[in-house]
Structures are given as C-alpha cells and as structure tokens.
Computed example of a mutant assay.
Amino acid sequence: MKRLIFLPILSILFLSFTVSAQEELDKEEGTLKKFVEIFTIHPNKKAAAADSSLYPSKIILAPIINYSPETSWGFGVGAKYLFKMRGSGDETRTSNMPLSAMYTLENQFILFSGFEIFTNREEWMIYGNFIYQDFPRLYYGIGRNTPTENEEHFNFNQVLFEPLLLKRIFTKHLFIGGGIRYNRVYNVKPKENGILDEQIFPGSSGATNIGLELAAVYDSRDNILNATKGWFMELTHGIYGKSLGGEHRFNLTRLDLKHYIKPFKNDDVLAFQFKAHISHGDVPFNELALFGSQEIMRGYYEGRFIERHLLAAQVEYRKKLIGRLGGVVFIGFGDVANRFHDFSIKNLRFSAGLGLRFLLEKRERLNIRLDWGFGKKTNNYYLNIAEAF
C-alpha cells in the first residue's frame, strides 16, 4: 500500500519537475545542455574539430536511479558510448555501447552492456550483449495459471554473453550472420521447502547452456535509441548441445519485430512490437520464456508466468507535449504456453498504461521515461532511461 501511495506522488513530482524544467529551458535552453555536458566526455574532440569528416563521439556518464517491480529502487552508474568508425558519414548510423552497474534495494547487483556497432557504410554489424547479475527474484511456478499465493523468493547468479557478427546482404538494411550464446545460472538458492525447492526439472538448480546461433537483423530505424520511422527485426535460432560444454540439448528461436510510423504531420509516433520465444527439447529452467517486464507487458512482474513459449505484442502512441516534455499511452497483449498449439485468443492477457518522457539528449533523442502499467489485478511503475522499445 505504501508503494501505491508513494509512486503516484513520484509521478506528480516528476511532472512538476519536467514542467518547471521546461519553463526554465524556455528562458535559457542552454542550461540543460551545460548540465549534461558536465557528465560528457569527448574522446576525439580535438581531432573532430580539425577534421570535419570525423564524427564527434561522446561518452555520456550518469548516475543511475530507476525503479521497476523486479528491482525496487536501483542506484548505480552508467556510461553510454556513442560513436562512428573513422570514415563513416551520414549513411552510417551512430553505434551504441552502453555499460551500467547497479545495486538495488532488493540486494541485487546487475552489470550490463549491450552493443550495436556499425562499420563504415554499415557493411558489417557487431551486435549482442553481456549480463552479470546476482539477482533475487519472485517465483510463482511454471505454467500460465499459477496462483498469486504461490509467490516466493529465490536467489541466483547469472552470466550471459551473446556476441553476433552479421554481414549486410541482399538489401540495404538486412544483416545475416551468427555467433555464440553462453548462458550460465548458478548458486540457485530456492526457498526451503518451497515450490522451486520441491520441483525437479531441467536446470532448476542451475545450468550452463552454450549454443551456436544463426541470426538475421533487419534495421531501417532512423534512430537506435528512439526511432520515429522504420523497421527493426531480430530473428535468432540457437542450437544448444553438450559438444560445446553445455548441459542440455534444445533449440531456442526468438523473434523481436518493431515498426515505427508518424501517423500525422507532426512529431507524434506510433510504435508497434511483436515478440516470440519458442523452445523445444530438453529446455532448462533458465531458458524458459518470462511473461512481463519493463519492456513488454508492462504492469506484470517479469517472470509472473513462465513457460516454454511466449507470444506478445504491444502498441504505443508517443506525443510531444511541450518543449522537452512528452507523453505516451500503450496497450499490450500476450500469453505463454507449454505447447505452441495451446495458444488461444480467448486466453490472451492484456496490459495498458501511460507514461511521461523528458528529452535528456536532443541529438540522439535520449529520453528519461516514467511508465505506469496495468495488468489483471496488478499495476507497476517503471522509471528508466531510453524507450521501452
């Protein structure tokens, strides 16, 4: 109850802050720029000043303060490296390498780096992520109808590394290639005599999974961090076995499809996303699909429902309100299933919500976001940097 009272107050404070900040920016736009510049490093500032063909790369440092139901309040430090390789011009989009370290009030530690790097003229793309986390999490059991009263905590450590090398082929925005995916979960500590402690299934006490991945990425977005038009499609198919050192044999297919349009003759954006997680074989616990997150099906706790397969979609309308202040409304629907043919329209779960945006960095359209998502008998707040998708 305290959280439900406190977080609406946070929304009011956030709105008051952004509006008052905008009033100040109306008087002097340079104020925020100067503030952001304090936390910005320009690695090639002198070289870019002397050579106009060089992209002025930057490393934006910032303290991290965010909130989600999975982490409670999180505090840490982050860096976002934005750059282009020497010789790249306007035909090459900005490469993005974030790195963040965060500790949360749920006694979690998370180290994350994602990367999307383009070579000159986008002939090649290096794509992937790295995660280390010491992460207590809520667990309700496996299945699409697990009751709320099943809720229990369990702890685990995870190391995930997924580098992909892709070559542009056939058309301007299509990249095809592959790589390797390493996912290790260990030090699993379930609640004594709880559901997870008593259940026995592949990977319930931890597992190491190593697979070769085939990947295709189509990316025509005009901006990686906050697109206003274009398509993004990431399709990966991983084949996991024991020959590379893994413990389980299974196949995992993942699809992330996004589309962005400007429906009117203004800066409003309509964004669409569809996600699928399809697994077959001896699938371990740490590779099952998690329903709910701060990115899709907002309002549901991440992992509220766990199963082999997941299908989910969402639509978000993004509107510029005044100056740097914007607002969004969104709706999502999806479900998990043990067998693919068990999916049914009548079983879909829905989520909806609204949010505020404050433009932190104009050139890359980097926003601070505050979302309030609702699901069936649940609602949650999310405070973070960058869009949900």
Rank of each mutant, 00 (worst) to 15 (best):
Phe274Asp: 10
Lys34Phe: 15
Gly230Met: 07
Ile210Phe: 03
Ile224Ser: 09
Ile65Asn: 13
Asp256Ser: 11
Lys45Val: 06
Gly87Glu: 01
Glu287Asp: 12
Ile5Ala: 07
Tyr182Leu: 07
Glu91His: 10
Phe175Ala: 12
Tyr55Ala: 09
Val315His: 07
Glu316Arg: 09
Lys80Phe: 04
Asn66Leu: 07
Thr31Asp: 13
Pro63His: 08
Lys172Arg: 14
Leu348Cys: 04
Lys58Ala: 12
Leu4Cys: 13
Lys320Trp: 15
Met297Ala: 03
Ser95Lys: 00
Pro202Ile: 00
Ala50Tyr: 12
Arg304Tyr: 01
Pro163Cys: 15
Tyr140Trp: 10
Ser279Pro: 13
Asn155Ala: 14
Thr171Val: 11
Lys262Asn: 14
Gly74Ala: 01
Ala49Gln: 14
Ile131Trp: 10
Asn96Gln: 10
Asp268Arg: 10
Gln314Thr: 06
Met233Thr: 05
Arg254Met: 09
Lys262Gln: 15
Leu225Trp: 06
Phe6His: 13
Ile169Asn: 15
Gln108Asn: 11
Asn379Asp: 14
Glu23Asp: 13
Tyr81Met: 04
Phe333Arg: 01
Asn193Met: 12
Thr148Trp: 12
Ser220Gln: 14
Phe201Ile: 07
Ser100Asp: 04
Lys346Ala: 08
Lys189Gly: 12
Phe350Cys: 04
Ile210Val: 14
Met125Cys: 08
Arg3Thr: 15
Asn120Thr: 07
Pro190Leu: 08
Arg3Glu: 14
Phe156Gln: 15
Gly178Tyr: 04
Ser279Asn: 14
Phe130Ser: 05
Pro190Thr: 11
Phe305Asn: 01
Gly141Trp: 02
Leu212Phe: 13
Leu174Pro: 06
Gly299Pro: 05
Phe305Val: 04
Ile176Tyr: 06
Arg137Trp: 01
Ala47Thr: 13
Asp267Phe: 00
Asn209Ala: 15
Val329Pro: 07
Ala79Cys: 08
Leu25Ile: 01
Tyr186Phe: 14
Ala337Pro: 02
Thr228Arg: 05
Leu214Phe: 15
Pro263Arg: 08
Ile180Asn: 06
Gly128Arg: 05
Met85Gln: 03
Ile60Met: 09
Glu116Ile: 10
Gln199Ala: 14
Glu234Met: 08
Ala216Thr: 05
Ile210Cys: 01
Lys346Trp: 00
Met97Cys: 00
Leu348Pro: 06
Asn44Phe: 11
Leu366Ile: 08
Arg365Gln: 13
His237Lys: 12
Ala216Cys: 12
Leu15Asp: 06
Ile278Gln: 06
Phe83Arg: 00
Thr92Ala: 00
Phe161Asn: 05
Leu25Asp: 00
Ile64Gln: 02
Gly143Asn: 15
Phe156Cys: 11
Ser204Gly: 10
Phe201Gln: 12
Ile59Lys: 03
Arg86Phe: 02
Asn66Ala: 03
Ser95Cys: 00
Tyr301Leu: 11
His259Thr: 11
Phe161Asp: 04
Ile200Met: 13
Asn209Leu: 10
Arg121Gln: 06
Asp268Ile: 11
Gly143Tyr: 04
Leu235Thr: 03
His309Thr: 04
Ile131Lys: 12
Ala50Gly: 14
Phe389Asp: 15
Gly332Thr: 04
Arg3Asp: 15
Val269Gly: 02
Ile239Asp: 14
His173Pro: 10
Arg86Met: 02
Gly238His: 08
Val283Ser: 05
Val283Trp: 02
Ala207His: 15
